[in-house]
Simulated assay, not measured.
Amino acid sequence: MSFYPYTDNGGSALAIAGEDYCLLASDTRQSGEDYKIHAGYVPKAFKLTDSCVYAGVGFSADGVALVKRVRQSIEWYRHAHEKTMSTPALAQMIATVLYSKRFFPYYVGTILGGLDENGRGVVYSFDPVGSFEAELHKAVGSGAELIQPFLDNQVNLKFLPEVERTPLPLDVALQIAKDAFTSAAERDTKTGDYLEIFIIDREGVNVERFDLKRD
């Protein structure tokens, strides 16, 4: 049997950008191979600044390593420039970090959610080698195939092409996130236990936790 350095610890994450907020949600279950559940509470989303949150889903060890490296770069930037890195600048920095590891990539699906310099919600999604783009909403992880079509329907209104798209109110986005994870947890054994929702607005970052399916 050949050596393979990666494993998929499962889990899902999503982000929705609003007019003056960004919502980022992830479950906390850590799974292994053969339907094993290693732990019920292993966070996948982390606050980086007062206006930015990161979520990484896939190989848990790589997700933790990436967060440590990014936080170190944020601290260096703060000391060098005496200010906090903006969310768009953070997105570019994470892309550079991921690209620097392109020959042995971090095995994670990455989302960055936060506010831009004008206080508007922004969402950036990355592939493992650093390519990234700004989006209105994004889902990654083992439940992404279930969650992304739901977001396309409820957030982007792709079933109503003639309707003008306007940013969702926060309470609607919260309900969509809860519904998406409730449904995904029923069908994806690697998504479950708890749902953590990070709400980023001008006041900072707040976290809410909800129960999900535990079997």
Results as ranks from 00 to 15, higher is better:
residue 33 E to H: 04
residue 35 Y to S: 11
residue 182 T to D: 14
residue 139 A to H: 02
residue 25 A to C: 09
residue 128 P to V: 12
residue 33 E to W: 02
residue 124 Y to K: 05
residue 167 P to W: 04
residue 122 V to Q: 10
residue 188 D to N: 13
residue 160 L to D: 14
residue 135 E to D: 07
residue 63 G to T: 05
residue 78 R to C: 02
residue 43 P to S: 11
residue 132 F to S: 11
residue 52 C to W: 00
residue 113 G to L: 07
residue 93 M to N: 09
residue 214 R to K: 15
residue 174 L to I: 06
residue 192 G to V: 10
residue 14 L to P: 03
residue 130 G to T: 06
residue 5 P to D: 02
residue 113 G to W: 06
residue 133 E to T: 11
residue 36 K to M: 15
residue 214 R to A: 12
residue 37 I to H: 00
residue 18 G to A: 10
residue 2 S to H: 11
residue 191 T to N: 04
residue 35 Y to R: 13
residue 84 T to K: 05
residue 69 R to D: 09
residue 82 E to D: 14
residue 121 G to W: 09
residue 52 C to I: 00
residue 83 K to P: 00
residue 129 V to S: 07
residue 34 D to G: 01
residue 212 L to A: 07
residue 80 A to V: 06
residue 98 L to T: 06
residue 111 I to W: 00
residue 210 F to W: 06
residue 167 P to S: 07
residue 141 G to V: 10
residue 49 T to C: 03
residue 28 T to F: 05
residue 117 E to V: 15
residue 21 Y to W: 03
residue 173 A to N: 01
residue 158 K to E: 12
residue 91 A to V: 05
residue 208 E to A: 13
residue 188 D to R: 02
residue 84 T to D: 14
residue 117 E to I: 14
residue 152 D to T: 00
residue 130 G to L: 07
residue 6 Y to G: 09
residue 207 V to H: 01
residue 35 Y to P: 00
residue 202 R to I: 04
residue 10 G to K: 01
residue 189 T to G: 08
residue 35 Y to C: 05
residue 213 K to P: 01
residue 84 T to H: 03
residue 55 A to W: 01
residue 208 E to M: 14
residue 117 E to A: 15
residue 160 L to V: 08
residue 70 V to K: 03
residue 119 G to T: 06
residue 108 V to S: 00
residue 27 D to A: 13
residue 53 V to Q: 03
residue 158 K to A: 00
residue 125 S to I: 14
residue 172 V to I: 11
residue 61 A to R: 11
residue 83 K to R: 15
residue 154 Q to N: 10
residue 101 K to C: 07
